[in-house]
Each structure stands twice: as structure tokens, then as C-alpha cells.
Design a protein around this nucleic acid. Structure first.
Lengths: 113, 113
DNA sequence: CGGAATCCAGCGGGATACTG
DNA sequence: CAGTATCCCGCTGGATTCCG
């Protein structure tokens, strides 16, 4: 029996165990090709606390999906951007977004009937 | 300012607010084109408790992504399958799986160097 | 068999204050 | 500015039991 909730056996479960969770896909999609500062990310996502954002960023960094660059300035400046591996997720995020849009469109359409 | 953590403004967030969470993508992918019984689903996913599985199935049903069919037999039999809307997620799940596989392949490759 | 009900521990995560 | 530290609440979700 292949257990589909086993990341070693199921590729969907594997992916979700990497980028699952409430915030990771949003952060990845938000970064895109850009390099963003911590404060800017926090501003774009007002619903996330700085503690959680900090944790998510650390995890994404540990997964080598994003790269953290600390500039030795005052006041401090830190920028986050996707690594090559992280960028490989962008097409997937695009598909996710596409589904979200078409699903919404269908819902609105159904409301008219 | 467009807030990317707002499902009304960001399609990625919108999708994740629908099929996000630990189990929904796995269940959807697991169902595929098949019709599966509660017990079979629980068997395929030993790590999920029946309570949580039951909840997830209810939520997916409320989202009209899956359809529940109850057969009036003894012992009882209930089958779950994707609706048309749910099936529209399968290509996305396929992409998710593809990324999971290629990501794993790259990791293994890097270990050789 | 397919759940619902109950109990309960763990921890995710919010709010706030503080620091280099 | 970019976090860390602390406190603490709420809810997720596990284990178990019971029911039609």
C-alpha cells in the first residue's frame, strides 16, 4: 500500500510539506523577481505578525528557497529574494493564481443564474 | 496598496484560502477520477485522524469541490468523489507533483557533488 | 462502516515591549 | 529597521468511546 500522506511516497504531499502552510506560497509569490525588505513584506501582509513572518522567512531560507542579505548599515537593512530553487516555484504559483481567478469567475457567473 | 494576504485582491491567497491547509490538496489528488469510501481514504492517509478527515471532507463538500454519496445499506457505505469544480484542480495538482519530483531530483543530484 | 461526541494537551500565533 | 523575548490565549487536532 502506498500511503499518500507520506512525502517519500507521494510527490503532492512532498511539495505541500515544503511549501505548504499558510504563508509560504504567498511570500514566494510576493517576492517574485524582486528583492524586498522585511518591513516591506510586513506591509504587504498586514495580517501576519512580525514573529511569524520572521519564522517563515527563516524556514524558507533553511529550505534554500530564499536568500537573506544583510547590509551593514544604520539603520539596518535586510533584503530577501528568491534563490534559483525558489524561482522554480514561480510557474507553479502562476498556475495557482490562474485557478484562483477562474474559480472566482465561475462563482460570479453562477450567481447570475 | 494592494495587500497580497487579502483573498479578494490576490489570486494566490484566494486559492490558498480555498485549498490550503494540510490535507485538502492531498485528498483532492488522492481522489483523482476515482470514487473512494471514507475508510479507504483513512487507510491511504494513516496520519490523519477520522475526526480531522471528516472535517476536511465536510469543508470540501461545502466548497462544492467534492460530492458525498450515501448508500442506504447495512453496513453503511459512503463514497466521495470530485465534482467538476474539484476536477478542475487536478491539472494544478499534477503541476504540484511535478515540482515535488523535480525538486527531489535536484536535491539528490546535489548530494552527489 | 462511517462517523459524532467528548476530553484534553500542545502549540501556533497574536499583542506588546524591548534591543542592537 | 529588523528583528527577539515574553506572556498567554485559543483552537487544532489526537485518542478514545459510543452510536445508527
Amino acid at each position: 500500500m502506498r500511503f499518500i500522506d507520506n512525502p517519500y511516497q507521494c510527490p503532492v504531499t512532498r511539495t505541500m510539506s515544503i511549501i505548504g502552510g499558510k504563508w509560504k506560497p504567498i511570500i514566494i509569490n510576493c517576492l517574485g523577481d524582486k528583492s524586498l525588505r522585511f518591513g516591506k513584506l510586513n506591509q504587504l501582509m498586514p495580517a501576519i505578525s512580525n514573529k511569524v513572518l520572521s519564522n517563515e522567512l527563516k524556514e524558507l531560507e533553511a529550505l534554500t528557497l530564499i536568500e537573506r542579505t544583510e547590509f551593514q548599515e544604520l539603520p539596518p537593512r535586510v533584503e530577501y529574494k528568491l534563490t534559483t530553487a525558489g524561482q522554480s516555484l514561480l510557474p507553479l504559483m502562476h498556475e495557482v493564481a490562474k485557478w484562483g481567478n477562474s474559480h472566482l469567475a465561475k462563482q460570479l457567473e453562477n450567481q447570475l443564474h
